[in-house]
Design a protein around this nucleic acid. Structure first.
Length: 440
RNA sequence: GGAAAGGUGGCUGAGUGGUCGAAAGCACCGCUCUCGAAAAGCGGCAGGAGCGAAAGUUCCUCGAGGGUUCGAAUCCCUCCCUUUCCGCCA
């Protein structure tokens, strides 16, 4: 949510921002509506002021009358007068409420203004690569790779099925489309990644959190996942939603609170199952573990003081944390800056980290790092008292994937596959898995 | 699932129709005292919106939404939430 004052004062920037994000919204209509709201509100306030003033007079007269026998007619006259005013107030109040309803609906759709450094573009194809890391695996056997053995790399479905790490057929039988069972070393490998991630990010000062995943819808409005992506959520019969990321309940954690700025930046490492209907993505990634309805994810979430510079610094820090994690696993990746069209409603700027998937010959998204300024915290009403001027301010929020499973397994097994179909395990995971490779 | 109690400022908590946006305490801020701190004393201190250069001033908000009334934190209705007890249960 943007401040209406900011929208009014920076109309052109807001319009340009929406255009950059390819979000359709009529800011001029919103401002027109806001004009109406202001005029009506001013009129109503004036009427209420009169009502209050006369009411006070009536009260005084009432108190006097208690002590005397002859009632003044003044009081009755005033009450009659107020009966008329009351009708006017009721009418204006109804009109105002209707305007506010429309106003709020529009306000929820106004996107945050993307940063200057965000490249133009419509889809993820227009994201700009800013970094590549690691050497792509060489399956040619040349230069001594794989002991001089050349082999055709397999995809993760084939590899993991052969190693009995995953069972998609039975997953589909029980869950349906996109269902999967992680089994044996597939399950063990997940636990290894989780344990390693917990240790890795804890060392960076993150407080681990296992949050509720069934959440009230208000939390999804807070993170700005709603009102836009209704179709992507599983709902319970109580009209609660299953969160698609721990970002949602963790942002809700401090909703309606006034935080102690001495604790900034507050760093949480959320761990939760994530549920996504993937509506509208039926033809995408139909095989394997890339796109599934339920998965697990470690998520970094930060709340900080309201400073653009701090947000920018922490944003880079968050993204770097995940890069370091991936580097420690030795998986080749690249980092992109997302283009305007690939930004969420509340995001100011976003980096995606994409891991190399050999069989596909491309990089696939594994992580997203975004900052929001006070867009989310305004909706959640998460504030702190600024010690500088003793004023209440909305905190800034940021988040970044730490690591998702099982998606990470795709790159893990494909990049480290051996000619015999076994998987070499990165050194940092070996102590958690208890072995250096997965073999049949 | 059954029963009961309750939702008031940063926190605790008083307030059952008329200067109540609200006692008191804690916390916080300022000042006095002090070499300094603590203690003590004095003063300030809810949030949001509008107008104003400012002083100030007006409106809204006592879980949410309706209703009664000239007037609602206070009475009525609906909903939401929390707590406690019983039951069930990983």
């Amino acid at each position: 949510m943007l401040d209406i004052k900011l929208i009014r004062e920076n109309k052109d920037a807001v319009i340009a921002g929406a255009r950059k994000k390819h979000v359709k919204i009529d800011i001029n209509e919103l401002i027109k509506l806001d004009d109406e709201r202001r005029v009506l509100l001013a009129a109503l306030e004036k009427e209420r002021a009169e009502q209050n003033a006369v009411g006070e007079k009536i009260a005084t007269l009432s108190n006097i009358e208690v002590g005397i026998t002859a009632p003044t007619h003044e009081r009755d006259a005033l009450i009659e007068q107020m009966k008329t005013l009351k009708k006017t107030i009721e009418q204006h109040d109804t009109e105002l409420k209707e305007i506010i309803k429309k106003w709020q609906l529009l306000m929820l759709q106004v996107p945050n203004i993307p940063d200057m450094s965000v490249p133009d573009g419509e889809t993820d194809k227009d994201n700009r690569e800013i970094k590549t890391w690691g050497e792509l695996p060489d399956f040619s056997g040349k230069n001594g790779a794989n002991g001089g053995v050349a082999f055709e790399p397999k995809d993760h479905v084939e590899l993991m099925t052969a190693l009995k790490m995953v069972d998609f057929e039975r997953g589909a039988k029980v869950h349906g489309f996109r269902g999967y069972y992680l089994m044996g070393d597939g399950a063990r490998l997940c636990f290894a990644v989780w344990n390693y991630a917990l240790e890795f990010f804890s060392a960076k000062g993150f407080v681990p959190v296992i949050p509720p995943v069934i959440v009230r819808k208000a939390n999804l409005y807070g993170t700005a996942h709603l009102p836009g992506d209704v179709e992507d959520y599983y709902m319970t019969q109580d009209c609660d939603a299953l969160a698609g990321t721990a970002e949602v309940p963790i942002m809700g954690l401090h909703g309606e609170e006034i935080l102690d700025p001495a604790q900034f930046p507050i760093k949480y490492l959320g761990f939760s199952p994530c549920y996504r209907r993937e509506a509208g993505a039926h033809s995408k990634d139909v095989k394997g573990l890339i796109r599934v309805h339920e998965f697990y994810k470690f998520e970094q979430v930060i709340l900080s003081e309201a400073s653009h510079e701090t947000s920018v610094r922490l944003h880079d820090e968050l993204n770097r944390n995940t890069e370091e994690f991936i580097e420690s696993l030795g998986i080749p990746y690249r980092t992109v800056v997302n283009c305007g069209g690939d930004l969420g409603l509340g995001q100011v700027k976003k980096y995606d980290i994409e891991l190399w998937v050999p069989k596909e010959g491309t990089y696939r998204e594994i992580s997203s790092a975004s900052y929001f300024h006070d867009f989310q915290t305004r909706r959640f009403n998460t504030r702190y008292r600024d010690p500088v001027d003793n004023k209440l301010r909305y905190a800034h929020s940021l988040n970044c994937t730490a690591i998702p499973t099982p998606r990470i397994l795709v790159s893990l097994v494909e990049n480290f596959q051996q000619p015999d179909g076994s998987i070499r395990i990165p050194e940092v995971l070996q102590k958690y898995l208890g072995k250096a490779s997965i073999v049949i």
